[in-house]
Design a protein around this nucleic acid. Sequence first.
DNA 1: ATCCTATTCTACCGGCCGTTCAAATAGATA
DNA 2: TATCTATTTGAACGGCCGGTAGAATAGGAT
Lengths: 233, 233
Amino acid sequence: MGDGALPLKKVKPNAEKRQADEPWKAFQVRHRSMEVKRDAVMKTAAHLFLEHGYQKTSMSLLAARLKVTKPALYYYFRNKEEILVECYRSGIAEIEGSLGRLNPDAGSAMARLKIYVHEYATVVLTHEFGRCVAMIDDSELSAQTRRGVRNLKRKIDASVRSLVADGMLDGSIAMCNPKLVSFAIAGAINWAGTWYKPSGELSSGQIAQAFTDILTGGLRPKSSKTRKRTIPS
Amino acid sequence: MGDGALPLKKVKPNAEKRQADEPWKAFQVRHRSMEVKRDAVMKTAAHLFLEHGYQKTSMSLLAARLKVTKPALYYYFRNKEEILVECYRSGIAEIEGSLGRLNPDAGSAMARLKIYVHEYATVVLTHEFGRCVAMIDDSELSAQTRRGVRNLKRKIDASVRSLVADGMLDGSIAMCNPKLVSFAIAGAINWAGTWYKPSGELSSGQIAQAFTDILTGGLRPKSSKTRKRTIPS
DNA sequence: ATCCTATTCTACCGGCCGTTCAAATAGATA
DNA sequence: TATCTATTTGAACGGCCGGTAGAATAGGAT
């Protein structure tokens, strides 16, 4: 945390790595690609948004954290809202990635659902932009921007629902309302984002596993063709 | 709706009932018990908080909805925060009521847990103050007030955990981490508060039932009925 | 050394916020 | 009717916000 004066003009070779932990260093050098600095802004903003909430995070504070002045931010983003939207986009892309990686040919739908729930929890607990998707209410956004973001979220929801529906067809998941199942999963995990602390006694992996069990355990068919040695009632 | 000029000075006999739907009528008459007007403020505030968020709900807007001017509110509450805190208190009391009504002598812990989950969902979906507890982030509060509110919430959480622990003892609930179960339940249901619309296709009762099934289904012991055995070493 | 332009800064705007206080008012009381 | 007090109001406060205009500057290119 020692923020001693650094009169450096040239970046050191390991600056790229440093930037991961101290995003403001991206601004130490004047000429650097737009993308790098946008990333630095987003990353810092995400942390502040998650810590204090979107509304209570002022552009001045964000600028201060990046060791720049406020107007500099407006060189990289049109306004505060755009920063949040980009955080959302990034987080949603991450989650969609998890969904896309599920191989439809491998295992039952239930097996795939379990993998997804586990991955979703991991992203929401450990990935800053994933956390934004889970925790920051999109009602902070203007009407039309919100519509865009919600469409993206809806796509994820739709994928999960169809996963559940598939499971009901292949017998790996009990009869249920896929919409409500999808919401229950999203809710329980998103909520975990609000209380999980990396320094806490439970690791993100433990939480992801436990939630996978709790949330998919209730979906086991009570008796079905794909059972492996179930108890005769 | 039609807010025509109402030069009434006296309330009509059915005013008490009307006030339920139109809280501002509590302020139509100057001399009325403090409690009635405080309730009116809280009720209206809760609706606004839930609709626009706490931060974005201004005291001016709240006053306007109650057809009073801003300073009048400060006659009934010290500040904005106190209004939110009272909403919390009321909601938490409602939830604690549900927990208190569970008869420890009747049925298994699992049966009681199911009842509680159902009731919690109902409160969070239908009761305005319950919704506040579920939806409004208490980080909006000042540090010391927040501590008080969190203590109250923790009591609820502790009750649910011990309910789950009881279930593991009486064999009605499978081995699990009570803390995570409690969080999963709270999360899934609190989240429902964010998307549930009374006018939607799903009734609060349907949602409460489905969530009870999904969330407690995964807790069924995998083998055997009620066995009084403790943890098999 | 000079220029050029991408980047950052200084200084400021209008607006809304929560809150306060003294003055006005309504309505119960006598 | 006149009085007294619980309620309500008008007017204003300091403060911080998101955002902008335009000047300053750094640093690569020549």
